[in-house]
Amino acid sequence: MTEVATQPPEARERRKLTGYWLLLPGALWLLLFFLVPFYSLIATSLYDPEGSILTGYDMTWAFGNYVTALQDYWPPLFRALWYGAVATLLCLVLGYVLAYAIAFKAGRWKNLMLVLVIAPFFTSFLVRTLSWKLLLGDEGLIVDTLQFLNILGDDGRLLATPFAVIAGLTYNFLPFMVLPLFASLDKIDPRLVEASRDLYARPIVGFFKVTWPLSLPGVVSGTLLCFIPAVGDYINAQLLGNTQTRVIGAVIQSLFTDANDFAIAGALSMILMIMILAMVLLYVRRAGTEDLL
């Protein structure tokens, strides 16, 4: 600090330079392997669709790729968005109950419950999803119970249905909902809730007038953290679903690696990214929490 005291401008300049040096390697990595690839993806999506990995691809500004991609693959695209949206909504309901319980009702068990929320996250995603295959299987406990209660017919199944896919997505992305919700709820001053009890007779009114609005930043970031990966995911759709539940992620993957149809795969990837960006921007604007970014 003595240096700073005697020659402040130079020292400050040096600190500024240190900042750049600290940032440089990581920023270069992101530039090379995040931003430049995006450029490659845009270029790939405009390649001549007749090309192949053997003959090479020509850049022909083939905007028609986007039309072809949408025409051929709109059902899995909208299916993915639909599954993602339903799973996000379910995550919000379940996650809100859990986050609320941790923030306001857990008392001295708060830290333990938080650890329990992130703990399942540390076991392999695929192995956990395989467990759901067993749980929802035709001879599993859940199907047997539902059949016993006559909710499900005798030949009714859960596995290989959209229900199973959505249940898997909800399960897998729930921690991404709970943590930001908890962060928002935990910041709420309990005195505000008490004041609302004095002003509104019923707690439920107080909840919707005080707690819910104050937790909106958590709701917005939680739903985004759930929705974005859930739309791109194809592990649940493939392991828990059937041929009718194919989603856009699986299409893009197989176009790239099996069919070598890079141009259409690139266009589909871009369409997915653009749709998600548009929805996110619209949503963030409507929710009115633009300080999120």
Binding site: L30, F34, P37, S40, L224, P229, G232, I276
Partner: peptide, 20 residues
Amino acid sequence: AIFLPMASPEIVLGSSLLAL
């Protein structure tokens, strides 16, 4: 630049890297 990779679906990140 730090936030964007987390806001992109994995399938998009993966396919853009493959394209590169």
